[in-house]
């Protein structure tokens, strides 16, 4: 169920070209009102993504503040022993942030081939992270810690699943940016890559925050 819900958030978050954008006149003209009417200026996509991130942030703030409040109640709170693989996953995700940044700059300099390579690396790292998260779950399950075992484990699964779903959406966007049918779209590949990287960095930062919370706030 959460997956379908977050899919909806993905749509918000993506807020960008392809199937989800309006037919535009001038492609990506950076400002409205000149040369006929560009329906939607380029900056609107950035506004849309930022707003989507704000909504996602509120969603996670609700979950994390519930986490903190629930932990404060004490009682039967049994801290989750975080699987060591999470450290590795964190490194993978941080690396993916670096690689997407490299890719974006390559595109800026017109080096399409190396953009594709770095973009592909980022996508791979994203998938690797997700697989790592699934492995972390399997570790916990093997240790007998399930979703309903105790409040701490419930929150652990909910937070990681919610983040994972959002990151999965991000991976889909990465694929989309790489293989999009550029001609039919309303924004250039450069804009799409920039929007995707904003989202990607945000998901990276969000994970670091969640990971710190899960570690320090056990």
């Amino acid at each position: 169920m959460p997956a379908t819900l977050t899919n909806k958030l993905e749509l918000i978050r993506s807020g960008k070209g392809g199937g989800t954008g309006p037919p535009a006149g001038g492609d990506d003209d950076g400002g409205s009102g000149r040369g006929g009417r560009a329906r939607v200026p380029r900056r609107a996509y950035f506004t849309g993504v930022s707003l989507g991130l704000a909504a996602i942030l509120m969603f996670f703030m609700a979950l994390t503040s519930s986490y903190i409040v629930r932990k404060g109640l004490g009682g039967d709170w049994q801290p989750v022993r975080l699987p060591g693989i999470l450290w590795l996953n964190t490194l993978v995700l941080l690396a993916s942030s670096a690689s997407i940044e490299v890719a974006r700059r390559k595109l800026g300099t017109g080096a399409t081939e190396s953009f594709r390579r770095w973009w592909g690396i980022t996508t791979g790292l994203g998938l690797l992270f997700l697989m790592g998260q699934v492995m972390a779950w399997r570790h916990l399950a093997a240790a007998g810690v399930f979703l309903a075992s105790n409040p701490a484990s419930s929150f652990f699964y909910v937070l990681t699943a919610a983040h994972g779903a959002h990151l999965l959406g991000g991976v889909v966007v990465l694929f989309y940016v790489a293989f999009r049918a550029g001609q039919r779209s309303h924004i250039t590949q450069g804009t799409a890559a920039e929007l995707a990287s904003i989202y990607w960095h945000f998901m990276d930062g969000l994970w670091v925050f969640l990971f710190l919370l899960l570690n320090l706030g056990r």
């Binding site: 819900l5 909806k8 958030l9 749509l11 918000i12 807020g15 409205s32 939607v40 200026p41 900056r43 609107a44 506004t47 849309g48 707003l51 989507g52 909504a55």
Partner: peptide
């Protein structure tokens, strides 16, 4: 409904800011 409203809200704000 929450999902739908979030999508609507995002559209309204972007439109007002940028269009």
């Amino acid at each position: 409904f929450c999902g739908a409203s979030l999508m609507g809200a995002l559209n309204f704000i972007t439109t007002t800011i940028d269009l």
